[in-house]
Design a protein around this nucleic acid. Structure first.
Lengths: 84, 84
DNA sequence: CGTGTAAGGAATTCTGACACG
DNA sequence: CGTGTAAGGAATTCTGACACG
């Protein structure tokens, strides 16, 4: 696993790097759009890939999509990718 | 700056990844062998490169070197590199 | 010299809820 | 639905010091 995928950042830093509120970041997790890991104590840890993913999500939210639709879009992408 | 050099990890994770105690990690900083950044609140943040560096330091410490000698070795390396 | 540890405080994060719309 | 916020607690980190050797 490369550095990009390793879950190492706390939510505070992710919030800083993405410009998204911690509230939003936790909410997108609740909606199953991102999947941080946890420390033994329960603190969330994110990867650089999660940061990129969050930026994409943020763009789509700005376009007025619902989290549900974003989830749906990804499902389709995966499907077409598996057909290629 | 690549993911590798970006200072993003807390000391707890670094301790876990390197197997070194937080005490040791803070001490090597005190001896100017590593240079973590800080959050506004004062929490240290390390990069993947710091992790590699710490592992090298740990090896040399196991070989019985003093932190002072490790520092010295690096000074020489930089010098020979600049001559090349 | 290098490192463990107990101490007390401060920064950070967590969850569940209320609010608004 | 998506997001802000105040609340209270828990996990995490910080510093300076004492200890040993």
């Amino acid at each position: 696993m490369s550095y990009k995928e390793k879950k190492v950042m706390t939510i505070g830093l992710v919030s800083e790097l993405t410009g998204l509120s911690e509230r939003k970041i936790r909410y997108y997790e609740e909606r199953k759009l991102i999947f941080p890991e946890r420390t033994a104590g329960g603190t969330r840890k994110y990867s650089f890939l999660d940061i990129e993913r969050l930026c994409e999500i943020a763009e789509k939210m700005e376009d007025g999509l619902f989290t549900r639709e974003i989830k749906e879009l990804e499902r389709r992408k995966r499907k077409s990718a598996s057909l290629a």
